[in-house]
């Protein structure tokens, strides 16, 4: 179990590193799917099988497919990869890397000083999550519904194209 956890963690970290260093968007997204699947394995090992299934269905399924659809709509050419390579070269990586690694080392120091002991993980199944979700957290469920509704309205409003009026001789775009 411990070995599986470390292997899955290593895959997640390596795949995420590959995501943030790719120049091609589709390659990055494929690595992102691998990273999400590895994190789903970690969730399963931590006794959360319901969340592992949600991770695969919603993150690795719906969200990544949504991003792929948008990339297909944008119809990016090979120049986009070349431009990305051009943006990524040079010492652009050094400053942010140093700052974030210092933050990570601080976090590691804090976590390692708390002194939590390992113990058996109990499986918290979908029933317990559902009982909690529709019991004490029911107001959160309603707020999530409002959030999703505003997300739908916002995405529709922002994604709407300007109406094109096609005349016989001249084309103009209505503001």
């Amino acid at each position: 179990m411990l070995t599986t956890f470390y292997i899955a963690s290593a895959i997640a970290v390596i795949a995420t590193v590959m995501v943030i260093t790719r120049h091609n968007l589709i390659h990055a997204l494929l690595y992102l799917v691998v990273s999400f699947l590895a994190i789903a394995v970690v969730f399963y090992l931590l006794g959360a099988p319901f969340i592992a299934a949600l991770e695969v269905i919603i993150y690795a399924g719906a969200i990544v497919v949504l991003i792929i659809f948008v990339i297909m709509m944008l119809n990016l050419k090979a120049e986009a990869v070349e431009q990305e390579r051009q943006w990524m070269q040079g010492g652009i990586l050094i400053g942010p890397s140093v700052l974030s690694i210092v933050l990570l080392v601080e976090l590691f120091y804090i976590i390692s000083n708390v002194g939590m002991t390992g113990h058996e993980y109990q499986v918290v199944d979908a029933k317990a999550v559902g009982m909690s979700l529709y019991g004490p957290y029911v107001i959160g469920v309603e707020l999530s519904g409002i959030l999703l509704m505003s997300g739908i309205v916002g995405a529709y409003h922002l994604g709407r194209q300007k109406k094109k009026i096609v005349h016989r001789f001249l084309e103009e775009v209505e503001e």
Partner: peptide, 20 residues
């Protein structure tokens, strides 16, 4: 059993990579 620190550290590393 999986140490809690290892899980939190994994979350920290992934968050750091995203921030970077």
């Amino acid at each position: 059993t999986i140490p809690v620190e290892a899980g939190l550290l994994l979350a920290g590393i992934l968050f750091m990579l995203g921030l970077l």
